[in-house]
């Protein structure tokens, strides 16, 4: 941002004066042209311009983003129900700390981070196969992308039917002699089921990014590897992955964001946070406390915690991306 030189702090005050002066002059002189102004005033206006130009953006950010954020944090230190509006200190945060449901939801965020490599590896591998022109790669390219255009609610409803205890998936399992699996009713499995469905529904986007990355890949390296007789595994490990570092990092970051911010719809439709509260995520917890339990202040506290978590994750991601940028 071209703000100019030395003393930015005094400038807004002066700019106010300059404004008032100009207005006065205009009032006196009537329709006299601006070119008649002294040069010093013109220079001042020049220095003022950046502030004025960024003002709308700053105001929108401050008024519609930061100020509500401050209000939300402020609200999280007040009580619920009969204590509505009265300050209660950190008791909402202490309650969160003691609530096993909230701890589960944070734990599930950790689980998502752990599952991230799998969520990135799947589109990566599939994109590799498409790039290496396995038979039918054109068909796969569109088929893989297709679920990405479905809304989570539709995806959730489809998989609810598929994965129901008496649903078709268990029927197939039963036909081959494997016992039925309670996909959405077993607390040890349900979270993995939902994450699996989420990956299924969204990996198309990452696949496209990978394919774009592949288009920048130096084909002569692959040819060289082939001539040297490298196996598929070695080609992937030694040629493809090193050349795609930036793409992989980018997909990591976007997949992470997707997992942390857009699982609500699926959870809402598929498990409702259950069974036994095992599929809660902070977002779902916040919605539950605010809408179902009538605890808006507690929900604000949970939102604040989630905000801090996302801030940390976001900063880490930015530093990862920066480092990737420097490498090139």
């Amino acid at each position: 941002m071209p703000i100019g030189s030395s003393s930015p702090r005094v400038r807004p005050a002066r700019s106010g004066q300059a404004d008032a002066a100009t207005m006065k002059q205009r009032g006196h002189r009537g329709g006299v042209h601006a070119t008649a102004r002294p040069t010093s005033r013109g220079a001042r206006a020049e220095r003022l311009a950046p502030y004025v130009l960024v003002a709308p953006a700053v105001l929108i950010i401050v008024g519609l983003r930061l100020w509500p954020l401050v209000l939300g944090v402020d609200f999280s230190f007040t009580g619920d129900g009969e204590l509505n509006g009265t300050p209660v200190g950190a008791s909402n945060y202490l309650e969160l700390l003691g609530d096993p449901l909230f701890r589960t939801s944070l734990g599930n965020v950790g689980l998502l981070v752990l599952l991230l490599p799998i969520a990135v590896a799947i589109p990566g591998l599939l994109a590799t196969f498409i790039y290496l022109r396995v038979p039918g790669h054109r068909v796969y390219r569109s088929v893989y992308f297709f679920p990405a255009v479905l809304s989570p609610v539709i995806v959730g409803a489809i998989f609810n039917l598929m994965l129901g205890f008496d649903g078709p998936v268990n029927a197939v399992l039963g036909a081959i002699g494997a016992g039925p699996v309670d996909w959405l009713g077993d607390p040890g499995i349900a979270m993995f089921t939902v994450v699996g469905v989420h990956v299924w529904a969204t990996f198309g986007m990452a696949l496209v990014v990978f394919l774009a990355g592949f288009s920048t890949l130096d084909a002569s390296l692959l040819d060289a590897a082939r001539v040297d007789g490298a196996s598929l595994g070695r080609t992937i490990w030694h040629v493809i992955i090193p050349s795609l570092t930036r793409t992989i990092q980018f997909v990591f970051v976007t997949t992470m964001i997707g997992m942390l911010t857009s699982m609500f719809g699926l959870l809402f439709v598929m498990t409702g946070g259950g069974p036994e509260g095992s599929t809660y995520l902070p977002e779902y917890y916040i919605w539950h406390q605010q809408g179902q339990m009538n605890r808006p202040a507690l929900a604000s506290a949970a939102s604040t915690v989630l905000f801090v978590v996302m801030l940390v994750v976001g900063l880490l991601q930015i530093s990862v991306l920066r480092r990737a940028g420097r490498q090139d």
Binding site: S15, A45, L48, A55, L59
Partner: peptide
């Protein structure tokens, strides 16, 4: 432009 600055201040 000046007027807009004024408006911005007022809005703020």
């Amino acid at each position: 432009m000046k007027q807009r600055a004024l408006w911005s201040v007022l809005l703020a």
